[in-house]
Amino acid sequence: MAYSDKLLDHFKKPKNVGTLDKSQKNVGTGLVGAPECGDVMRLQIEVDETSGLIKDAKFKTFGCGSAIASSSLATEWLKGKTLDEASSIDNMDIVEELELPPVKIHCSVLAEDAIKSAIKDYKSKNAE
């Protein structure tokens, strides 16, 4: 499959690969997908409690090139955003940015799900 240069760049030099300490109260973790489906994405956000901004984001992804690039891009976009701004990231923004071919759109959906799931986790940990 012919991929865009942007996608290949995110695949070859993925940004923000890693693991945040999920036991921290200000870290939200989203784990979506399943090994049987061929992709599992784990996306984590670390929120600055005073400013409410996402100060760090990390991912690890089991999946094809598009899944890895989508999660890498998502973590880049998340940093510096408020939770509301982060929630509004749409999978079609990822499709557009990486020029994902139609058969790979599900990778962007997974990335959006991972973002929402990480935010939900953070909010449930911090709901008083």
């Binding site: 993925p14 690969v17 693991t19 784990l31 979506v32 997908g33 399943a34 090994p35 049987e36 489906c37 599992v40 994405m41 784990r42 690890k60 992804t61 089991f62 890895i68 799900d113 799931s117």
Partner: peptide, 21 residues
């Protein structure tokens, strides 16, 4: 890059995980 490799190394039973299909 693989979260399930990390889980495997941490000794997580991958078959027991509730994956979101």
């Amino acid at each position: 890059l693989s979260p399930i490799w990390e889980m495997y190394q941490e000794g997580v039973d991958l078959d027991a995980v509730q994956w979101s299909e």
